[in-house]
């Protein structure tokens, strides 16, 4: 392989790892705290991307400025979905919530296809194609910005979970629900808040993705799958673990794309299979949320 392609691959992988971390972190807190494998995660991401697209196309709102809007809207949506839908079956076995989020994903994608059509769409601000070169390696500004925003959001989540009373209540609920209730934590509200955070993070990732890549109603599934693999890689429910898992996964994806372009998705799943066999607790090996 040429060294240029190799260096560009490294840069691309690093840029990709930021977005993937943002996608996976929301998936991870919902899984870790609520014990729900949220298959609708990618669908929320897609809706976030469309919010940005419509705000840009209809009102000319800069896609980066639409980030808080898309996150806020989907925060509310996530809260309501958990509180009034998923909460009804929260005591049911994992399979029931799994199926419910699967159904939710299909409904959201179908509604999106119905209202917005299945066409590929792009968010194209004036600066979309700009970038800079490091030697021969190209670095697009929007992807670099997306990378740093992803890191900032992930960092903010970490600070929230570690240093605020509410964040501690969320973690406590994930570790021992009865003990959390005995400290006065209200579980339904805490669950809804956690799900809302996960949904908002998915939407934020959707916004950032929509600036760099074309979007369509089915775009989310691939991200749900990646988030799943990253959580397994990084060990469930640890923010550093998710970051590590995202980097590893991004490198595997980018380089398998360079070496075996047609096997890209298969390799993601191959990694999943290998991790489950070799080290089921993930790289970080943490069993629960920290």
């Amino acid at each position: 392989m040429e060294s240029l392609q190799f260096t560009q691959g490294i840069v691309n992988a690093i840029l990709l790892s930021g977005t993937l971390a943002l996608v996976a972190i929301g998936f991870s807190i919902v899984w870790g705290i609520l014990n729900i494998i949220n298959l609708a995660h990618g669908a929320f991401l897609m809706v976030g991307a469309y919010i940005t697209y419509w705000l840009f196309t209809l009102y000319g709102i800069d896609p980066f400025l639409s980030l808080p809007i898309s996150m806020a809207i989907m925060f509310v949506v996530g809260y309501l979905v958990q509180r009034y839908l998923i909460n009804m079956v929260i005591r049911a076995p994992l399979l029931v919530t799994f199926l419910l989020t699967f159904a939710l994903e299909i409904v959201i994608i179908n509604l999106a296809t119905f209202f917005w059509k299945g066409d590929l769409r792009s968010v194209t601000p004036d600066y979309a194609g700009l970038g800079f070169s490091l030697g021969n390696v190209q670095v697009p500004y929007v992807r670099l910005a997306a990378f740093f925003i992803s890191l900032i959001l992930t960092g903010l989540l970490h600070v929230f979970m570690t240093y605020t009373k509410t964040g501690n209540a969320i973690r406590a609920t994930g570790m021992d629900i009865d003990a959390a209730r005995l400290q006065g934590v209200r579980i339904p509200q805490t669950y809804a808040l956690t799900y809302a955070l996960g949904t908002a993070l998915a939407a934020g990732a959707g916004t950032l993705i929509s600036i760099s890549f074309p979007i369509d109603p089915t775009m989310g599934g691939a991200y749900t799958l990646r988030a799943f693999v990253i959580c397994v890689l990084g060990g469930l429910g640890s923010i550093p673990g998710v970051m590590m898992g995202s980097v590893v996964f991004a490198f595997i994806e980018v380089f398998s794309g360079i070496w075996f372009p047609s096997l890209k998705d298969a390799i993601a799943l191959l990694v999943l299979v290998l991790v489950l066999i070799v080290r089921p607790s993930g790289i970080a090996g943490k069993a629960f949320y920290h």
Binding site: K165, N168, A169, R171, A172, M175, D176, D178, A179, A180, L182, Q183, G184, V185, K286, F288, Y289, H290
Partner: peptide
Amino acid sequence: HLFAGMTVKENIMMGAYL
């Protein structure tokens, strides 16, 4: 029923949650 992954301080302060 401690919160095993949280620090001692965080555990103690959870008691004052309300």
